[in-house]
Nucleic acid binder design. Sequence first.
DNA 1: GTTCTTACA
DNA 2: TGTAAGGA
Length: 155
Amino acid sequence: MKKQMNSDFIQRVKNIMKTHDFLLGIGDIASATKVSQRQLRYWEKKGYIHPTKSSEERRHRKYSYHTLMKVSMIQSYVDSGYTLSVAVEKSSKHEEMTNALKHLIGDRLRDFNILEDGYELDFGAVEGISESKNLVAVIREGKPTKFILREKSDS
DNA sequence: GTTCTTACA
DNA sequence: TGTAAGGA
């Protein structure tokens, strides 16, 4: 239900982006990321990045903001000394990790509290441990983050 | 004016 | 890989 609403929203945003041509040219990507147009065309030939499908009928390539971020991340890995292919692998893995984290948070985060010096994230009950307790991540500035099992409150 | 491909250095 | 040529 919630997921349905969310994908509808994303679809509407995509439609608006398309009708308003909220897309970036190769020059935009190049100037923003300092990756040359030559390099971007090379990355495309290698299959690392893809122009939007709608640009297949166009004269020029068009890129999404998502692609901009991907290029930026790949380049940051390249700047760190990784080879291009490794940089691409790392950016793919980073993206998957981000998706997994979003999934985890959306799926399991039951409560969130802001503390004086940090945060508490309540992930609810842990299967097979204790149904009356919740797993809580406690993050405090200057201290190691820890997980605790806390008795459920009635309020 | 920008982007495209091809080709040369 | 940068740059130039010559078109779109």
